[in-house]
Nucleic acid binder design. Structure first.
Lengths: 205, 205
DNA sequence: TGCCAAAGAATGAACGTTCATTCATCAGTG
DNA sequence: CACTGATGAATGAACGTTCATTCTTTGGCA
C-alpha cells in the first residue's frame, strides 16, 4: 500500500487502520475476528473505530479494494519497463518466492472462501481478477505485437491460469518442507506458459 | 462418501448428518454457520444434534476426515486399474470438469483458509495432503517402474503440484464464463506433468 | 503570555441479538 | 411403569453497533 504524498490525513489514518485490520483478519478470519479484536489491533477503542469505517463489512470491502489498487500499481510498474514480459516474470517470481506469504496468502484464502459464499464479495473479487487479467493481456499483446482483441481471445485463459497459480502458491502453508520445491515447479510451469506467448512473438517478428 | 454394508447404524446416521452439515458450511462458512443452521439442515433439533457430535469443532474435523477418506477410496479405485496412470488422468479430469464444484470447492476453500489459521485443522489438512501425495507417488513409481523411494525424491513436488491445481480448479467460481477455458488449460498442464513421468517410464522400458 | 469556550478524537459501558451448549421435558414403545 | 430418542426453551458469553461521556487540541481574546 503506497500513498501519494498529498493524501489527506484522514485517508492516511484509514490506511493504517486497514493494515492493522488485515492482520486481525489474517489471524482469525473475516467471520472470526471481532470488532474488538480489530479495534485493539488498531490501538484504539471500538467506538472510535466506527468513525473510520461504518461497519465490519465495509472494512472487508475496503481491504479487498486496497489489494486491488496495490496490484494495479504493481502492473503499472511492469508496463513502464523496457521488456514488460521479463518484468512480469520477475515480479511473479518475487511474489511467489518472497516471504509475502505472511498475511497475503491468508487474506487471499479468506477472500476466496468468502467470495464463493457472498455475492457482493464475489463481485469485488471478480472485478479485481478481471482487472489483473486485462493488464496481463495488455502485456501479452505488447510482447507478441498483436492487437489487444486478438491477445484477449487467445490468452484470456492463460492469464487466468497465471493468476490462479500465483494465488494457489500464496495460499500454500509456509512451514511445509516441500513448499520450496513446489514453488520452483510452479514457477517453471508459469514460465513455460509465458514462453508459449513469447515464442509466438518471435515468430511474428 | 461410500459406506461399507456392515457400517453400524449410528455411524450411518452420522454420515448423513455430516453430509447436511457440509451443505450448511458451504453456504455460510465454518464460522458463519450456526448450530441452529446445521441442525435444521439435518432435520433435527439442536439438542439432538449434540448426541452425534460433541461440539462444532468436532463436526468440522469429522467433515475434513471424511473428505480424506473419500479421497483415499478414489485412489484405491485407481490402483486396482490395469493402467493406473491413465485411470489417474481420467479421475482428475472428472474431478475437475464435473459439476462437483457445487459444494466441494466451497468446502476446500473453507478448509484452506481455516488451516492457515488454526493449527489443529492445519494438521488434519496436512495429513490429508500427505496421504494423497503418497498415493500419487505410488502410482508414479508403478508407472515408471522405479523404487518408491526414488519416485518420492523425484516427484514429491510434482504430486503436490497436481493436488494444488485440482484444488485451485475446484475453488474457481462456477458461473464465470472463462472457467471452462481455464479448466481445459489446467488439464493440459496436468497432463503435461504426467507426460513427463510417463516419458521416463518409457525410457526405462 | 494566560485563559476559555468550541471542536474533534477517543473512550468503554450498554443495547439488542445471536451464538454454542445444556437440560428439563416429552412422546412412543415394551 | 421404565426406557429411549428427541425436543426446544433456557443460559451465559460474545457479537456488531450505538452513544453519552471524557479527554485533547485549537483559536480567539485579553
Amino acid at each position: 500500500m503506497s500513498l501519494s504524498p498529498d493524501t489527506p490525513l484522514a485517508d492516511l489514518r484509514s490506511a493504517e487502520i486497514l493494515e492493522s485490520a488485515r492482520r486481525a483478519f489474517a489471524e482469525k478470519g473475516f467471520d472470526g475476528a471481532s470488532m474488538q479484536d480489530i479495534a485493539r489491533k488498531a490501538g484504539m477503542s471500538v467506538g472510535n473505530f466506527y468513525r473510520y469505517f461504518p461497519s465490519k463489512a465495509a472494512i472487508v470491502e475496503a481491504l479487498i479494494a486496497s489489494d486491488m489498487e496495490e496490484m494495479a500499481q504493481d502492473f503499472a510498474a511492469i508496463l513502464v519497463n523496457a521488456d514488460p514480459l521479463q518484468a512480469l516474470r520477475d515480479t511473479i517470481e518475487r511474489k511467489i518466492t518472497e516471504a509475502e506469504c505472511q498475511g497475503d496468502g491468508q487474506i487471499w484464502a479468506e477472500i476466496t472462501a468468502a467470495s464463493l459464499r457472498k455475492p457482493d464479495i464475489a463481485e469485488i473479487a471478480y472485478r479485481m481478477e478481471t482487472g489483473i487479467v486485462a493488464h496481463l493481456i495488455g502485456i501479452f499483446a505488447h510482447t507478441a505485437k498483436v492487437p489487444v482483441a486478438e491477445a484477449q481471445s487467445r490468452w484470456t485463459a492463460h492469464a487466468h491460469l497465471l493468476v490462479m497459480m500465483v494465488k494457489a502458491c500464496a495460499m500454500q502453508p509456509p512451514e511445509n518442507p516441500t513448499t520450496a520445491d513446489l514453488t520452483r515447479l510452479v514457477l517453471r510451469n508459469i514460465n513455460r506458459t509465458l514462453d508459449d506467448i513469447a515464442t509466438l512473438a518471435a515468430a511474428k517478428g
